[in-house]
Design a protein around this nucleic acid. Sequence first.
DNA 1: ATGTCC
Length: 474
Amino acid sequence: MKIERLDKYMWRIPREGKMRVDAIVFTDAESVDDPQFREAMKQLMNVATLPGIVKYALAMPDIHWGYGFPIGGVAAFDAKDGIISPGGVGFDINCGVRLMKTDLTYEDVRDRLRAIVEAIYETVPAGVGARGDIVLGKKGLRKVLVEGAEWAVKAGYGLEEDLERIEDGGKIHPADPNYVSEEAFERGSDELGTLGAGNHFIEVQMVEEIYDRDLAEFFGLEVGTITIMIHSGSRGFGHQVATDYIRLMRDRLKEHNRDLPDKQLINAPFEHPLGQAYYSAMNCAANYAFANREILGHLVRKAFWKVFGKDTRVELIYDVAHNIAKVEEYEIDGKRKKLVVHRKGATRSLGPGNEKVPEIYREVGQPVIIPGDMGTASYLLIGTRKAEEKTFGSTAHGAGRVLGRSAALKRWSYREILDELERKNIIVMSKSKKTLVEEAPEAYKDVDRVVHIVHEIGISRKIARMVPLGVVKG
DNA sequence: ATGTCC
C-alpha cells in the first residue's frame, strides 16, 4: 500500500485500482506502521471504490477495523448518484454520547462517591438484554421512533430544556416506522432507558483541566466541576434494523452489489426505494437512541437528586450521535451539493454560525464530546469551520480499540482490571466481569493522543478535559 | 455493538 505524508498529521493513499477517490487519514507517524492500522486502511480503500463517493474517503485518528467500513471513518456520497450503506453507519445506529454538568464540585461529592455510583447502578438497567421499566406496544413505540427525545420528555423522562441541547433536537426525519420490521419492534419494546453492554458506560467525572477559559466559562465549567457522561445507543432495536437491511440489500440488490471488494460494504443507491427505506428506518433507530439517552440522562438526574437533594442542578450540555448517515449540503468544486455523509465512529463538528447549531450555541459552534474508554479521560471540544471545509464537518469520536475483545480476555483477569482502576481511585460497578475485562483501559488507544491530533489539525478545538471518579457499566 | 449463531 502506497501511503504519502502530506503534513504532520495528514496522510494520503493515492487512488489505485477500483478506487474512485483518494483515501485520506489524519494520524501521527507512530500509527502508520502499525499492522492493525494497515488493515483498517485497506477497508478505507475499499470504501473509496463505492459509487458516488465525493472528494475522498476519510479516516480520523481513532480509526480501527469495523464491519465493512472502518470505525473512525467518514464517507460522503452524492445524494443523486451515490449510495447509502448500513455498514457505513454501524450496527449500533446512533450510538452516541452526552455530557451533563452539575452545580456540584469535587469537594461536595468526594465523601459520597460510592453512594452516587451505587444509586446510578441501581437506577439504570444495564447489561446485554436488560429490560427497562418502560414497556411499549406497537403504537407507543411508533411514537418514540418519530418523536425521539421529545417523546421521553413528554413521558416525564427529561426536561423540556434538554431538547435544544441534543443534535438535531433529538428528532430526525424522515423517520417512517412502516419501514421497521416486526422483529425490531419486538426487540425495542422493553429496552428503552437501558444502558447496554460493551463500551457503553455512565461516568461521574470531574473537570481536571481547562484549555479555553472563555468557552469553558460559556459552558459553565471550572476545574473541579462534577460532570456526567453517558455513552449508549439504540440497543437491540438499531441492531435489528441494521441486520434487516443488510439482508434485504443482499437479497434484492444482487446485481448492484455484484463487484464489491468486500461483501460487508453492501449498499443501496440512495434514491432507490430500498435505500430510502433504510434511510427512514435508520432514522427511526436514531430517534430511539436519542430517546434512550434522554431517559438515561433523566434516571441519572434522579439518582443525583436522591443522593444530593432535589435542588441539585443536572443540566445537559450536549448530546451527539457518532454512528449515523445524514443528508447535508457542502460546497464541492464551487457548487453546493446534497451529500449522504456517513459518520461511523465520527462526530459532527460544525463551526460558529452554522444554522444547524442550536441558537443557544450558534455563536461559538457545536459542542463536540469525545469520551475515552473506561478509566481514562474524556473531552469537551468545539466544532470548527475548518472541519466544514476539510472533513464534511466531522471529527474523531473516541479512543478506538487496539486490542480485540477475546485478546483482552486472554491477557487480563477481572481482579487485575479492578485493581488498576482502584489504584486510579475510580469506583467501578459492572453487571458483567467479562465486559469489564474486555473494556480494559489498555485495550484502547490513548484518547489524549487522538484529541491532540484533531485539535492540532483544527477540525475541533479543546475546551476541557474530564477525568472519571465513578463508572457504571453493563 | 448484539436476546454475543440461522
